[in-house]
């Protein structure tokens, strides 16, 4: 129904509000609820300046964080789209289209080849913003491709995970990505190359139960939710509230499931040191001058 209050007054109020707090300039921390100025947030690698909460970041930010400029993006391999002609309330192809528009990516896994303090490396990053990072044919093939690239170049593979699990809309073919990505890991093992997993918030389901838990070294970002079954499924099964901190990175560390919890600021230096040790190669002096993980939080031994 057209009336003056709805048509004239409300939009004006909304416009006024928009002008005062342009939401793209300030971001509300999902953990502590405080507002952080966007530039400050970017400078702090999307870690809340108030509470240290590690916000989710996409592949581009991740590559920029870990790799030297001038890295090359590895083209995603062609796969069949919508192999099952899946349709629920919406067509799967429509869901794919909107995820592509939203992220500018063709699917959930992006791969880059570059250097970290001079050490060659292939990095595969899952984007949670792309249909929950879920793993289907495209994501599985991207990981197999990343492993192949790493073997071809004789460099380590780093997988930065973030996913709700399998891409349901690809049915059994999404499930088959569990053994397929495991074959990818096997390729690195056979070639004697390090495979390091960085678990970020959240990593659950079939992704955790395959390549994400098979790293030679397992690292997690602080506070990341990591598990097989999601917390809601478990609560429904056992019919009780889950303990505080359950399935968080620190919980996994305490239960012996991962090697270290490393803050984003110290991630590159930590990875460089690990790769340098495992491959007995020296990082470039620029890397040695950078602050080691110890400087950032004291959770790992000093660099030198």
């Amino acid at each position: 129904m057209a009336n003056w209050l709805n048509d004239v007054v409300r939009p004006k109020i909304r416009a006024a509000l928009r002008r005062e707090t342009p939401d793209h300039l300030w971001k509300k921390c999902p953990a502590c609820g405080q507002m952080v100025f966007h530039r400050e947030l970017a400078d702090n690698l999307h870690v809340c300046t108030h509470c240290g909460h590690h916000m989710r970041i996409g592949p581009e930010a991740r590559f920029d964080l870990l790799l030297e400029p001038g890295y090359t993006l590895v083209d995603p391999p062609e796969v069949q789209a919508d192999p099952l002609k899946f349709r629920d309330e919406r067509r799967y192809t429509d869901r794919l289209k909107s995820a592509r528009t939203k992220t500018g990516q063709s699917d959930a896994v992006a791969v880059a080849y570059g250097t970290m303090d001079g050490l060659g490396v292939v990095i595969a990053v899952q984007n949670f913003a792309f249909m929950g990072g879920s793993m289907g044919l495209a994501a599985g093939e991207a990981l197999v491709n990343a492993a192949t690239k790493a073997v071809d170049h004789g460099v380590p593979l780093i997988a930065v995970t973030a996913a709700g699990g399998a891409r349901m809309q690809e049915g059994i073919l999404s499930l088959m990505q569990m053994p397929r990505t495991t074959v990818a890991v096997e390729m690195l093992r056979d070639a004697g190359l390090p495979y390091i997993v960085v678990l970020t918030d959240p990593t659950t389901g079939g992704v955790t139960a395959s390549f994400a838990m098979l790293g030679d070294i397992q690292i997690a970002e602080p506070g990341a939710l990591i598990g097989f079954a999601g917390p809601r499924v478990i609560e429904q099964t056992i019919r009780e509230r889950l303990p505080e901190g359950f399935q968080r990175a620190e919980y996994l560390l305490a239960h012996g499931m991962i090697d270290a919890v490393v803050p984003r600021k110290a991630m590159k230096a930590t990875l460089v040191r690990m790769i340098s040790l495992l491959t007995n190669r020296r990082a470039t002096p620029a890397a040695l001058a950078a602050p080691g993980p110890a400087a950032a939080n004291g959770s790992t031994p000093p660099a030198r």
Binding site: M178, P179, T182, V183, V185, E186, T208, A209, S210, F211, A212, M213, L214, G227, F228, A229, V233, I234, T237, I238, L242, P243, F246, Q247, H255, G256, M257
Partner: peptide
């Protein structure tokens, strides 16, 4: 499916499944 419970998670359900798949493949 694999059991979705607190104790299973605490002992590494996902790691166990991943390793078992890997063992099959090897």
């Amino acid at each position: 499916g694999a059991y979705p419970g607190v104790d299973a998670e605490a002992r590494g359900q996902s790691e166990a499944i991943a390793r078992s798949t890997e063992t099959c493949l090897r």
